[in-house]
Every structure is written in structure tokens, then in C-alpha cells.
Amino acid sequence: MLLALLLTAANPNLPQNPASAALPELPRPPAAFAIAADAKLMDVLRALADSTGQAILVDQQSRTVLETTATGLLRDTNVPPAQAWPYVQSLLAFHGAQCSYELRETPTLVAVRSPNSGRGPAGSNAVPVLLEAGQTGWLERHPGFWVRTSIKLPNTDVRQLVNSLRAVQTQNLESVINAGESNVVIVTGFGSSVLQSVQLLRLIDEQSARHPTPLGSVVPGTSGAGK
């Protein structure tokens, strides 16, 4: 595997007030970040690395895919500095490409894997970022990172719920499992996907607390949507 280290430098533009001191944040570009509508994903990634000084690692197979994949954007755009990384990560996630930390200590090193390279989510060997379910702000800022979190649902039979939820999971290879006999659910996937699942699980648990009724199963004939 050939690794391409695009850029390694000090990170002078770290956010002023990261929501979580325990989890690393990515440096902001000094000004609005421009993305051309016809740019390839690799061009965008390279420009953001140049602009922020963030070191990024892309294996050769992923690089080949990202260099030939257009963003799909219909218009040129200028993204505010604070939104640059979330925006680019959303674009990567839309195309199934996954970010992860190879090094979490400064200077951090971010790896990007494409799904068609054999090293992305389908055959992912990325180590997920572990975080608490309450860290939704970090998830919102890191929609393309591969993450894992756990959430306690005190009012819900999580084993049955997890079985039922498979019908309303998407194809983003998100994994929702119950942790043994406890009322804890473990969610793994893209940051954006995990964020939405945590919110969904909380909403379900709130309803369960208000209306404790037996849990049913998937309604026949409705589990095929999106499959």
C-alpha cells in the first residue's frame, strides 16, 4: 500500500472553543473555502489540507477513486471557515468515503478511505472514534468520521427494539447492536448517521416512558423501502 502524505504542518487555526477537550478538532481555513462545481473529491481534499495545514493520509486505491469522482455539486460555492470541514466531510460521506484518525495527538493525522478501494466502509479497518452519546456537537462537526457511541435507553426493551430497527436503517453500513442484557445500545457508523440514530433512539425512549406498551415487530410489506 502506498500512502500519500499530503501535507504536514503546524495547525495555527484551531477552533477557539472546541466543545470537547478530549476529542480533537480539525483546524479551520483562514478564510472562506472555495469549491468549484466541477472539482474532483481529491482536489477538494488537497485544497483543504493546503489551506488548513491538516495532515491527511490517503492510500493509493482510495486516491485513484477520489481523483476520478466529481463532487456532484451543481454550483461553485464558498463555505465559511467554521463549516469547511463539516461541509467537505458531508460531501465525502455522500460518496461513501470515510474519515478516521490515524493519530489523535498533535499533530493529528486524518486518513480518508474510499468505499470502492476495498479499504472504505465495506471492508473498513478504520478504528472508530469513541465518544459519549451526549457529544452531538462533535458529531455534527464531523459527519464523515467513523465513530462509535453507546446510549442507555432505560425505558425500552433494547433487544427487541434493535431487531425492529433494522427495517428503518439505511445502507450506510451503520451498525446498531444491544450490549448484552443491559439497556445499552451501541451505534457505529458515519458521524452524521450516528447523530441521527442517537436522536431517534432518544425519541423512542421518551415515547416508551410515556406509553409503556409491548414492542411489536416490522409491519409486513414495509421493510423494503430503501433497500
Binding site: S164, A167, V168, Q207, P212, S217, V219, G224
Partner: peptide, 9 residues
Amino acid sequence: VAIIRGPGC
């Protein structure tokens, strides 16, 4: 659409 029945919802 996909519909599942959860606890109370």
C-alpha cells in the same frame, strides 16, 4: 416508507 412499531410509537 418503512414502518416499525416501537414501544408506544
